[in-house]
Each structure stands twice: as structure tokens, then as C-alpha cells.
Design a binder for these strands. Structure first.
Lengths: 193, 193
DNA sequence: CCGTATAGGGTACTCGGCGTACCTTAATGG
DNA sequence: CCATTAAGGTACGCCGAGTACCCTATACGG
């Protein structure tokens, strides 16, 4: 009788269900049975599409956030950088961030999954934003041209991530962000002369 | 009949067995049953001492490495820093490192466990080593005094850790270490004037 | 020296969750 | 209109974490 969903439609339904489970219970609490039930289907349909739970988790994660994150342009490198870090901190502190961290932890020993995560979680987008931020600072005469370097651009976010890993709590106090900017990022930019 | 071990003795036997399991199979592969069997006891004795698998894993980990890591003193800040990073990279690439990473991943959502890990894995010891390294560079006139700052000292190791997290492979190529030193650490130190 | 509290040993169990097997039933498209 | 494909239903197998219960050796106080 009625409508039996197939292909695209069913796939979207599964991803939606998985995303909702992620939101409610985090990755650790997302079970295949619950996703199947919620999508009104069964595990077969899922396993035909994704080889295992982690893959589904990653695929579903993108439904939660597509995180554009344009580079802020406040006219000063310091406030730009702070703004970026604050936004990132907020994102990572949010439920989304908790899920993301759960996924990262789960994927930790599987390079394939890590690669997938990188694409999905917009690490590279982020780095590009930092680079354009630096370029603008250079044209304003606020920074030496030599400071426009991928590793310089990536440093603040890496420090923030490491901070999460070390604390295990999903929110870094604002002082830490300020310190990262004032004691590391700005001196680092200055030092490139 | 015979000797039934108790208290201290049994505890050491369990920790040893757990450590061996860690070495052979990593944290993910360390099962309570196997540890119990290997220690010649049963899960009861284990659960009477540690509330869950993660706690045992962490307790056992210290049996594998006590990691002193004295600050190298080569006479140049650059080579000192590189040496530190290379040693760390080697440690983390080793089987021990794999286990450590497994534990970290498993503990990711439990602040209590993370705190335990911090103690055991000598993060603070490491930071102190970097600080003394910086101090020596200051007395040599190689660095401004303002660069002796905990966050500056912690930066290279944090970047290395983040590098692991992003790659998911247990060995960072040497070029990356060099880049961390030349493009980040040294400019950062220079920038503190 | 004995008897009782304590802690280890043995074993079997529950429970949850991943992944699979197998068959039935609806849709699709040639 | 029929063959092929994919979804639905359901029941497993398997493994590993923790738990329950009961038996037995050891320590320790009297």
C-alpha cells in the first residue's frame, strides 16, 4: 500500500533522523536502531548506504551546520582575530560542538574518517578566512607581508582546539582567547619582519 | 591451597596485565576479561578497585612510561626547540603514543578522566622544560625576557598535538617540526619585544 | 589456636549495541 | 506485464561492559 520511499528521498529521511539523534543524544548516544526507527525504516536501508555508524554520523553532521564563517573586517587585526576566536569558541561550545567533538574522538584512530571530518567541518575554509584577514592587515600596513603564511594563519585555531582537548570542557574562558591573541598571535605576526 | 594473592600484590599484577594488554592491543582492544585472565584473576577483583575500564586504562598507562624528558641544552634556542619537538614526535609515534592517543580519545567527554591523563602524561613537566629552555635563551641574549611566558612555552607542543589530531596519523614529518619552529616559535619569541 | 570478617575466585548472567542473514513485498522500467 | 531492484520486517550472532551470587582462602582479633 501507500508510499514506500526509495533512493534520494529515503536517504534524506535517514540523514535527517540521524542528525536529530545527533542533536539530542550526541554521537555516543546515536544508535543505529534509533535512527532507523526515527526515519521510519530499518537498519538494512542504512547499512546499504553507509558501511558503519561513524560514516553515518559524519554524513549526518553536515546537516546540522554548514558554517560559512566569513572573515570579519573590523579594521584592526586584533579585533578581527578576537572575533574569529570568539565565534569559533561559541560554535564549539554549542551542542553542535559537542557532537563534533564526539565524532572527532570516535574517528581518532581511523585516518579515513578524519579526512572526511576535515572536509565537513570546514577547517580549510577557516584557514582561508584567517589568511584573508592577514592580507587585509598587510594592506593596512598593520602587519609585515611575511606574516601571510598558512602556518601563522592556522596557529590560533590550533591553539584553541588544543585548549579544548586539554580541558575537556566545551567552553574556553574569554581571557584565554585574549591571551592567545595578545601573547601569541600578534607577537607572532610582529616577529615576521 | 597455594598462594592466593591479595591487596598490593594482586593490584600490581592487574596493572601489569593491563599494561601488557595496552601495549599489545591498544586501549580500544583492552578488554576487562582479557586483563582479568592475564592477571590470573577475575573481573570482580578489578571492579573492586577501578570503577570502569577507562580508569584502569589510565592507571595502567603509567606503568608504560614515566617520561622524564629533561630540557635539552644545545646552546641555541632553535636546536633546543627542534630537539624537544623531535623527541615528542618520536614518543607519540611509538606504540606508547598510540595508546596515549587512544586513551585521550576515550576520555574526551569526561573531564575527570582528562584531568587524570594530564597528570600522568606529564604535560606540565613538558611546559616547565620549555620555560627553562626559554630562560636559558634569555640569559644568552638570544631572546627578550618578555618571551618567557607560559603560553609561548606551551605553543609548540600544542601545535604538534593539533597536528596529530588533524592528520590522525601517528607521525608528523620532520619538515612540519621545522616549520613550527621557524615559522611560529622563533618569530613568536622575536615578536615579544 | 580458633572463628569471624574480609577479600579473592568462579561463573553465569543481563543489557545494550553493532553488524548480518534471509525472506517478503513494493516500486520501477523495459 | 514481468523481471529486477531496493525497501521492510524480523530475528539473529557476537562481543564487551558491568553485576550478582555463592564459594573459599587468608588475615586478624581475641
Amino acid at each position: 500500500m501507500g508510499t514506500r520511499r526509495r533512493g534520494e528521498e529515503l536517504e534524506r529521511a535517514i540523514l535527517l533522523a540521524a542528525a536529530e539523534e545527533l542533536r539530542e543524544s550526541g554521537y555516543a548516544g546515536m544508535t543505529m536502531d534509533r535512527v532507523a526507527a526515527r526515519a521510519g525504516t530499518n537498519k538494512n536501508a542504512i547499512y546499504r548506504r553507509w558501511p558503519h555508524r561513524a560514516a553515518l554520523g559524519i554524513a549526518a553532521y553536515r546537516h546540522l551546520s554548514d558554517a560559512a564563517m566569513p572573515a570579519p573586517d573590523t579594521g584592526s587585526l586584533r579585533t578581527d582575530a578576537l572575533e574569529m576566536l570568539r565565534q569559533a569558541n561559541e560554535t564549539w561550545s554549542s551542542p553542535h560542538g559537542a557532537i563534533l567533538r564526539g565524532l572527532l574522538a570516535a574517528a581518532a584512530d581511523d585516518p579515513q574518517l578524519i579526512a572526511l571530518m576535515r572536509e565537513r567541518s570546514g577547517v580549510d575554509t577557516m584557514d582561508r578566512a584567517w589568511l584573508t584577514m592577514l592580507e587585509r592587515a598587510v594592506t593596512r600596513g598593520e602587519a609585515p607581508a611575511a606574516a601571510v603564511h598558512p602556518r601563522v594563519a592556522a596557529t590560533p585555531m590550533m591553539l584553541l582546539r588544543a585548549e579544548y582537548a586539554m580541558r575537556g570542557i566545551p567552553s574556553v574562558p574569554d581571557e584565554v582567547l585574549v591571551e592567545i591573541v595578545d601573547e601569541v598571535f600578534l607577537p607572532l605576526v610582529r616577529g615576521h619582519s
